Amino acid sequence: MIPTRKLTESWDSVWPTLGETGLINAHVPTCFEVRFDGKMWQVLKDRQPVEHHLERRDAVHGVRRAMQRIFASGKPAQWRLIAVSA
């Protein structure tokens, strides 16, 4: 007989909420943003600047490489492009 894991039977262990303690499946994704600061394209990781690029394409490629490393470790990540205001 296979033992039943009681923690995985609860809603919180399957769908964890950020900030709760004692959860076994808490996966908070790493968040990347690409934005133009008026001179250069910035890459931010969890709201902290990590790279600067002259071209938007290079910034996006940098984010994709970083996300692939995160995915390879089995963790989640997401990114967004911040619209440039005219």
Rank of each mutant, 00 (worst) to 15 (best):
A66E: 13
G62T: 09
D37H: 02
R47C: 09
V28N: 08
L54R: 14
M67P: 00
A59F: 07
A66K: 12
P29K: 01
L54Q: 15
V43Q: 07
E51R: 14
V63W: 03
F32D: 02
E51M: 06
L44Q: 10
P29A: 13
M67D: 01
E51I: 00
E51S: 09
H61M: 08
D37R: 04
V43A: 09
R57V: 10
H61R: 08
E55N: 10
H52D: 10
W41G: 03
T30P: 08
L54D: 14
H53Q: 10
R56M: 15
V60Q: 07
D58F: 04
R56P: 01
V60C: 02
D58K: 13
V43R: 05
H61E: 10
R57A: 14
R64W: 01
F32G: 05
W41M: 05
H27L: 14
M67W: 02
Q48I: 15
M67L: 07
V60H: 00
R47H: 11
K39T: 14
G62M: 01
F36M: 02
V34Y: 06
V63A: 06
D37V: 00
H53Y: 12
H61L: 11
M67H: 02
E55Y: 05
A59K: 03
R35M: 10
L54P: 12
F32V: 05
Q42G: 00
W41N: 05
G62Q: 03
R35G: 03
C31M: 03
F36L: 04
A59P: 10
P49Q: 12
G38W: 10
M40V: 15
G38I: 12
E55F: 08
D37Q: 02
G62S: 15
K39F: 11
D37F: 01
V50F: 04
H27P: 00
L54N: 13
Q48Y: 11
V60M: 10
Q48D: 08
H61F: 05
M40D: 11
L44I: 07
H53S: 08
E55R: 13
R47L: 12
R57Q: 10
E55H: 08
R65W: 00
D46Q: 14
L44N: 13
V63Y: 06
P29R: 01
R64F: 00
E55T: 09
D58V: 01
L54S: 12
Q42N: 14
K45M: 15
K45F: 01
Q48G: 01
C31P: 00
R57T: 09
R65G: 00
V63E: 05
V43H: 06
L54V: 09
D46W: 13
A59R: 04
A66Q: 12
H52T: 14
V60F: 00
R65A: 03
P49V: 08
Q42M: 15
V34I: 13
E51K: 12
R35N: 05
L54M: 09
R56L: 15
V50G: 03
V50K: 06
P29V: 05
V50L: 03
H52N: 11
K39S: 14
E33C: 07
G62F: 01
L54G: 15
P29Q: 04
C31S: 07
V43K: 06
D46I: 09
R57Y: 07
R65H: 04
R64M: 05
M67V: 04
D46N: 15
E55D: 06
R64V: 02
H27K: 12
R65T: 05
H61Y: 04
M40W: 13
F32P: 06
K45H: 03
R56F: 15
G62V: 01
G62I: 01
L44S: 09
V43C: 10
